[in-house]
Design a protein around this nucleic acid. Structure first.
Lengths: 220, 220
DNA sequence: GACACCATACCAACTGGTTGGTATGCATTA
DNA sequence: TAATGCATACCAACCAGTTGGTATGGTGTC
């Protein structure tokens, strides 16, 4: 790289184009935050690290976000969007029986529990553990993200309760939150062993619980 | 030496005694770490904050622990000891039926889900979330603490399985880990809302699951 | 279509305050 | 008096955020 860049004639359009497209820094910073925070936690992650992972400078960071906390909030919101396809794309969402769809979703979450721990754990779950008492904006953004997940899961549970019945005291949103709790808890356990196996074990129990809940009489 | 405090005759035992007993700094530092880390997380907690909360100086800190990480490991080990009485003291541990003891334990954990979130959440669960990828000593100490809990819970589950039976694929240690996962997950959810109610909801599902697991021939 | 004008996107270098850790001294106890 | 327990004073590295500037692309005007 002899030329600092000054040489770049205006006709280098063809191949070079190493430079990332203008306007991509924000998205790259959020993706870098997801990646880094899931591995190290929020407080231990520095702005410089996020910038380095995103391949941009600090100037770009503070152009797009007024503070580290503001990035955290934006990243939590982006996490919600990132999770949305989990409810729309997968094949099991087309199943006729809502209980099959619910079980299908749990199976799907089970299948995600593979590979390095920091690649399947939850960004907002990790972050809210650290920030719930020190940053209300972050806590609320994480709460909204988890709430959106539960709300997306609840309709199938409600439908399953109507067609298959369910014990007293079980509500769609309540069971959805329990699903989320088991997932979050399984992430914590997986972090202790640095291995997904222990997480799969718990989700298997969750699946059995859901099956038992709706296994009273099919079509009573 | 002019008497800065030399007045204190050896017979001042009655009331004065403002100074903490010599040798208490270590325990106070660990207690302060438990308190502060549960509220703010590990990385966000500074050594100075821990010292302030313990009422000692940094000199005392680094006299007892060679680093912040070493304190974290010691605090995780102390957490294990702190949890031990939970299995020995409570009245339900005297029940004859092991299933009653297991349900009693879950009820007991349920009853702990009250008051400020940082007062019932798990020190090692919080810490391992942040440190699992950056500090093996901390991760292993947290793993040992959670493992000790599960091992303490497993015998009653094993006995319950023998007297009441249980479905294929359920193991004592596996179910114990699931109990722990639900608790850890319920803590995460409670942090999103800053309210224990959502955690109680999940533990109620856990209790129902355990009841259903062992309810094969009892009532039907 | 060429030019002036300007908002947006981004960069490199710097700063004030904080952090984990150290060096040293002194009082109490064995 | 030797060792232990703890305090004070201090430091080098680091961190979130700032500053002052450059590059880029869009828009209105003629």
């Amino acid at each position: 790289m002899t030329n600092s860049r000054a040489l770049s004639s205006s006709s280098d359009a063809p191949a070079a184009a190493k430079r990332p497209p203008r306007g991509s820094a924000r998205a790259k910073l959020i993706a870098a935050a997801h990646q880094t925070v899931r591995k190290q936690g929020y407080a231990a992650t520095t702005v410089d690290q996020i910038c380095a992972a995103a391949g941009v400078t600090k100037g770009a960071f503070f152009h797009h976000f007024e503070s580290k906390e503001a990035l955290a909030v934006a990243a939590a919101e982006a996490w919600t969007e990132r999770a949305r396809p989990l409810f729309e794309m997968p094949p099991y969402t087309r199943l006729a029986d809502p209980l099959d769809r619910l079980i299908g979703h749990i199976d799907f979450r089970f299948s995600m529990l593979d590979g390095p721990v920091e690649e399947f754990t939850c960004f907002v779950g990790t972050m809210v553990q650290e920030a719930f008492a020190t940053s209300d904006p972050i806590r609320l953004a994480c709460a909204a993200s988890i709430d959106a997940y539960c709300e997306a899961l609840a309709p199938d549970i409600a439908a399953a309760m109507e067609t298959h019945g369910a014990p007293e005291g079980v509500t769609p949103i309540g069971l959805a939150r329990h699903v989320q709790a088991v997932l979050q808890g399984s992430f914590v356990l997986a972090k202790t062993t640095n291995d997904p196996a222990i997480a799969r074990e718990s989700v298997t129990h969750l699946k059995r619980y859901v099956r038992m809940l709706f296994a009273r009489e099919i079509g009573s």
